[in-house]
């Protein structure tokens, strides 16, 4: 390593020549110095916050655009349940249980529906009042009610009549 030795007389003679004073714009530099000590932090905050805000807004816009383009008008079926209706009860003759099953489709809506429900604080099913029979129990009750209306209950008239009817319907040996 080279030591910083003392300058020789020749070096001192050269160094005694002073470089010419520059014609710098000192006022402009002083103004910038004062400005830099004040403006620094707001400028720094703006530089950081602006890209963050822009990226968040852009991400949200792209997400909604994609969801709108891909899922508009479609409904997603989450589950298909089969609900058997209760056997028809009749006092006239025994009837085999109904083989008629009702398929019930649980629709959960699309992603936009979930986003919307999240924003408004309601579940998609709560907001959809057009199909109250979505609930399985309500569906059963509705079917029973419909069945009862279609076949009104007829009480047996007499024990004799009932036995005769049973005998007549039974084939002989």
């Amino acid at each position: 390593m080279i030591e910083d030795d003392q300058p020789t007389s020749f070096e001192a003679r050269l160094a005694s020549l002073r470089p010419r004073s520059p014609r710098l714009q000192r006022d402009h530099l002083m103004f910038l110095a004062g400005q830099a000590s004040v403006v620094y932090w707001p400028r720094y905050r703006t530089n950081v916050a602006r890209p963050v805000i822009l990226s968040v807004v852009a991400t949200m816009a792209v997400t909604f655009l994609v969801l709108t383009a891909t899922e508009s008008g479609s409904r997603i079926v989450d589950q298909v349940a089969s609900a058997a209706t209760t056997p028809r009860v009749s006092h006239d003759r025994p009837v085999s249980p109904s083989q008629e099953d009702v398929q019930y489709r649980f629709e959960v809506g699309n992603s936009l529906g979930w986003v919307f429900s999240f924003l408004v604080g309601k579940q998609p099913d709560e907001s959809d009042t057009a199909k109250p029979e979505r609930n399985l129990v309500q569906l059963r009750e509705a079917l029973l009610k419909e069945d009862a209306q279609a076949r009104p209950f007829k009480p047996p008239q007499d024990k004799h009549d009932a036995a005769a009817e049973t005998e007549s319907s039974t084939p002989g040996p």
Binding site: R26, L29, M30, A33, G34, A36, S37, Y40, W41
Partner: peptide, 11 residues
């Protein structure tokens, strides 16, 4: 943070 004041800059 840049703390160059006017006096320091002048110097």
């Amino acid at each position: 943070m840049n703390r160059i004041g006017q006096e320091f800059l002048s110097k």
